[in-house]
Design a protein around this nucleic acid. Structure first.
Lengths: 239, 239
DNA sequence: AAGTGGTCTAGACCACTTC
DNA sequence: AAGTGGTCTAGACCACTTC
């Protein structure tokens, strides 16, 4: 296990259990170096991560301080933001929820122009198109429209679409998903979407338009996910 | 100027102007060390930042690659995500847009329970409450409801509320805004909000609930901003 | 002046990929 | 075996805050 990860986990725990309460100052970097018997750069990396996770604030010249964050609220259990690269199935299964997927379309099509552009393929190339509704604990949560180039995500099967495309890409194809660019908007569902998601008229959805990238820089996925009204997207930003 | 910042800026530029086109491999870390005459750690920090900004992908054992990102789209000009800590006035003025603010309420109140909790103040303490609509180029963009503890944001004046609260906090009070935690949802506006924002019935808003923190860990602001329908929130996540 | 965090170095060692 | 990036060290030097 990496040293900086040990420091991160340990400090996270210490903050959570009250060893370092809100507003308190963490031991200085040099103290932490002694405590964990690591170098300054290791401590620095760990503190930077905790800062990015929103737990502490670092002030040059005076010290690192524990932030007073709301621990209750909708935040499920652990580091919320980490769930953003896992995919629907893994995320909900981790919470012990049952997952069901209904596939409305699984076909190969020529992509719309803006999709071809995002995926960096020709307009007359072929892409998979998937439309599915995903349920957690039997409640419809999201309708997804996904396009993937057939020469990147090769040999996709209905079975994978019904379970987890991400798992197929990473485990079966051996590709590595590296990052995702997202644009988030509020939208109204179409009549068809209302029916498929079982939402009443007049209720908005949260739309997440996403381009997913592999670790070689290739986009492998363009998707639009429309989440039912009670869905929340979390974000932490640092100066 | 910091060495890693020079490397970041230079590589950003080189990627943007096509010196390193999409899918190409950047020079190896050791090559970059030679080119910029800096140590490995400096290059590493720069590449990490470029990765977080979504421009490159790093693969242990094989190299760093330029991602194929959509350069057009709604992304205004520079690094979009950076605008997330600047505030409405600074952000729109930077784009050369005129900004107008209409203040509907500026008062001192006892905060609702969930607000008191987020701000870590007693339920019977006093907070400023501000409701304002902000226009850019004379079009209503967002309605904000903001609560701030009176003993943190001391002596707030109508003048500041009409221009920029962030600027007041940082420049006049000399405090440092460090981070923000956000929750994003799709909502329907109330009749009053529709009127104030001049939006038609049946159009949703994007709600951003935010707690802002100072660099000593204190929350200084709880706000709910409801953005008109065409607003987009951008986010990049990395594994 | 003393204490804090931030940057940077030269170099070691390691994990992983490619050939 | 050679090349890639990732982690880590001991220590220097600096920017900033506090007293």
């Amino acid at each position: 296990m990496l040293k900086y990860q040990i420091v991160i986990d340990d400090l996270r725990l210490a903050i959570k259990n009250g060893t370092y309460p809100a507003y308190s100052q963490l031991p200085s970097v040099s103290k932490l170096c002694e405590q964990y018997e690591v170098s300054k750069i290791t401590i620095n990396k760990a503190l930077g991560e905790l800062e990015a996770q929103g737990l502490i604030s670092r002030r040059r010249g005076s010290g690192s301080f524990v932030k007073k964050v709301e621990t209750s609220s909708a935040a499920p259990d652990a580091n919320d933001t980490s769930g953003q690269m896992t995919g629907f199935l893994a995320e909900h299964q981790a919470r012990g929820e049952s997952v069901r997927t209904e596939v409305y379309d699984f076909s190969v099509v020529r992509p719309p122009h803006h999709v071809a552009e995002a995926l960096d393929v020709d307009d007359d190339s072929f892409t998979y198109h998937v439309c599915r509704v995903r349920r957690a604990n039997d409640i419809p949560r999201v309708i997804e429209y996904t396009y993937m180039p057939i020469d990147v995500v090769t040999d996709l099967k209905l079975k994978n679409v019904q379970t987890s495309i991400y798992s197929f890409i990473e485990k079966d194809l051996g590709l590595k998903i590296a990052s995702a660019h997202r644009v988030i908007r509020a939208v109204m569902p179409s009549a068809e979407e209302r029916k498929r998601l079982n939402v009443p008229e007049g209720e908005p959805l949260l739309e997440v338009e996403q381009v997913g990238y592999l670790d070689d820089g290739r986009p492998f996925e363009y998707s639009v996910s429309r989440h039912v009204h009670d869905y929340e997207f979390h974000s932490i930003s640092t100066k």
